[in-house]
Design a protein around this nucleic acid. Structure first.
Length: 450
RNA sequence: GGCGACGUGGGAGAGCGGCUAUCCAGCGGCCUGCAAAGCCGUUUACACCGGUUCGAGUCCGGUCGUCGCCUCCA
């Protein structure tokens, strides 16, 4: 188990991963609001934190990964109304699609995927505690967090209250003590078809409180890593941090990790801008393997451009690994593999640098291709496995070509022996149509399935 | 306007103050009837201007540019 270091947004530094209990890590990352199918940008945290878990498990940690689904939200009400369905119905449908789409990434599921709508009791408890301790106040059925009561507000996002644009609008503004106060509970409004009873009347929870409540229930306050997209740092995570620490007297998490945005045309991919590429489309177009390589090809904190060329490049790299798999054999890897294997895991241990790790993978591929001797796959299998790409080495064992293909190959061998290149090339084309590619080598020709 | 991040070879993208990143594409070569696959070589990059240093993409300051957050947002 090597020392794992990760970038922490709060301190702005790369810090060692600290655990409450040796060997145990709890990770929570913010999942989507389910009012539509998710896009590639939404998928990035799912990939990053799923892979981080795999890596930590590889290092010997016992990891509990939690990711919420926000199924109560203004946008869901609006989208459901527009579609003429019940908001809960829409949320259910879109949650199922989210699960189906991310399942296609084949990275497993988080250990827990709590729904906001099923955690309202926990949220009410937390809100009550905040009111009792003077950190929140109720007004006309709403409850707001009283930001002024919490001195550390702004520490996560590194901004001062006076630096915020406070051009607050809407009817909530008049009920707040201060424009920066944010809603913990919202009184039921006309047109909202879901609501819960609370000490402050019928209503529904605000957004930020769900994560504080669900993370605490499933991981306990002070858990190891809280993650999400960098666009959530403020206000979402700032507010989460404030709520939990104000209520519990201890920090929500020990380390805040944020992934960079996926861009399309140099601009953040987002539903509101409308420049989205849906995850299921990306999976259809480029395939799951290429998409993973694409995500791993840049550091998780950097923005990454979603463009055709990058995805095609990723797909070509995948082919390169698959191509190598044909000539590997099961068993221990040669001596030259050792340093690369180490480099790979060291790179992941230093702020989860998948780009650098991938470089070791391709270095490995080159050395293996260069090797005259048979090459055992064990190290590469272990490396790729952590990136969720172990499958690239399966299917290395070729299916036997059908008799028809073998017959054509035989005919081509004859044609070549007679130097009838035109016929030989025609037979090669025919084989191509059957899905077989010819590889002429010193030991004769062989067939490879396309 | 405030806060922050980033600007690397044709494209993408790592990079610890001194050592080949890597991937995709191009070109040349090896292999080969031609291909494919693979290997070797190759275009000697770090926005600009100063500074620190024996030595700076790599540290400091400034300029320009791009992006993110400041409102829902992965």
């Amino acid at each position: 188990m090597r020392e794992v270091r990760l970038h922490d947004t709060l301190s702005g530094t790369v810090r060692p991963l600290e655990t409450r209990t040796p060997g145990k890590v709890g990770i929570y990352f913010c999942g989507p609001t389910v009012y539509g199918p998710i896009h590639v940008g939404n998928a990035r945290p799912f990939v990053v934190f799923s892979l981080l878990k795999r890596f930590l498990v590889h290092e010997g940690y016992e990891v509990t990964l939690v990711s919420n689904v926000t199924d109560v939200n203004d946008k869901i009400y609006a989208a459901a109304a527009a579609a003429g369905t019940a908001s809960q119905e829409l949320a259910r449908t879109m949650t199922a699609r989210y699960v189906a789409d991310t399942d296609r990434l084949d990275l497993g599921r988080p250990d827990h995927e709590p729904l906001a709508s099923e955690a309202v009791e926990d949220m009410i408890d937390l809100i009550s505690t905040l009111i009792e301790s003077g950190h929140a106040y109720a007004v006309d059925g709403d409850v707001y967090f009283y930001v002024s009561s919490y001195a550390a507000y702004g520490e996560l996002s590194h901004r001062r209250l006076e630096d915020l644009d406070q051009g607050e609008s809407g009817d909530a503004a008049s009920r707040k003590r201060d424009p920066v106060d944010f809603a913990l509970w919202k009184a039921r409004k006309a047109g909202e078809d879901t609501h819960w009873e609370s000490p402050w009347g019928s209503g529904r929870p605000g957004w930020h409180i769900e994560c504080s409540a669900m993370a605490e229930r499933l991981l306990g306050a002070g858990f190891e890593v809280h993650g999400g997209g960098s666009d959530l740092v403020f206000p979402h995570h700032e507010n989460e941090a404030a709520q939990t620490r104000a209520a519990r007297g201890q920090p929500l998490t020990r380390l805040w990790m944020h992934n960079g945005m996926v861009r399309l045309d140099s601009e953040k991919m987002s539903k509101s801008v409308g420049n989205t590429f849906l995850l299921h489309q990306a999976l259809d177009t480029y395939g799951r393997d290429a998409l993973l390589v694409y995500f791993c090809s840049g550091h998780y904190r950097q923005p990454i451009e979603f463009d055709h060329q990058s995805l095609v490049a990723a797909r070509t790299s995948v082919k390169r690994i698959r191509e190598l798999a044909r000539r590997l054999q099961a068993g221990n890897s040669p001596a030259w593999s050792g340093p690369l294997h180490k480099e790979f895991f060291d790179a992941l241990a230093e702020d989860f640098n998948t780009a650098r790790a991938l470089a070791s993978v391709f270095e490995w591929v080159r050395l293996a291709n260069r090797s005259e001797d048979p090459v055992g796959d064990s190290d590469l299998r272990e490396m790729l496995g952590v990136l969720g790409l172990g499958n690239l080495l399966d299917g290395g064992a070729q299916p036997a070509p059908p008799p028809r293909a073998l017959q054509l190959l035989d005919q081509r061998d004859h044609a070549r022996a007679e130097r009838d290149w035109a016929l030989a090339d025609r037979l090669r084309d025919e084989l191509g149509e059957l899905g077989w590619e010819i590889r002429d080598g010193p030991d004769g020709s062989s067939l490879v399935s396309l």
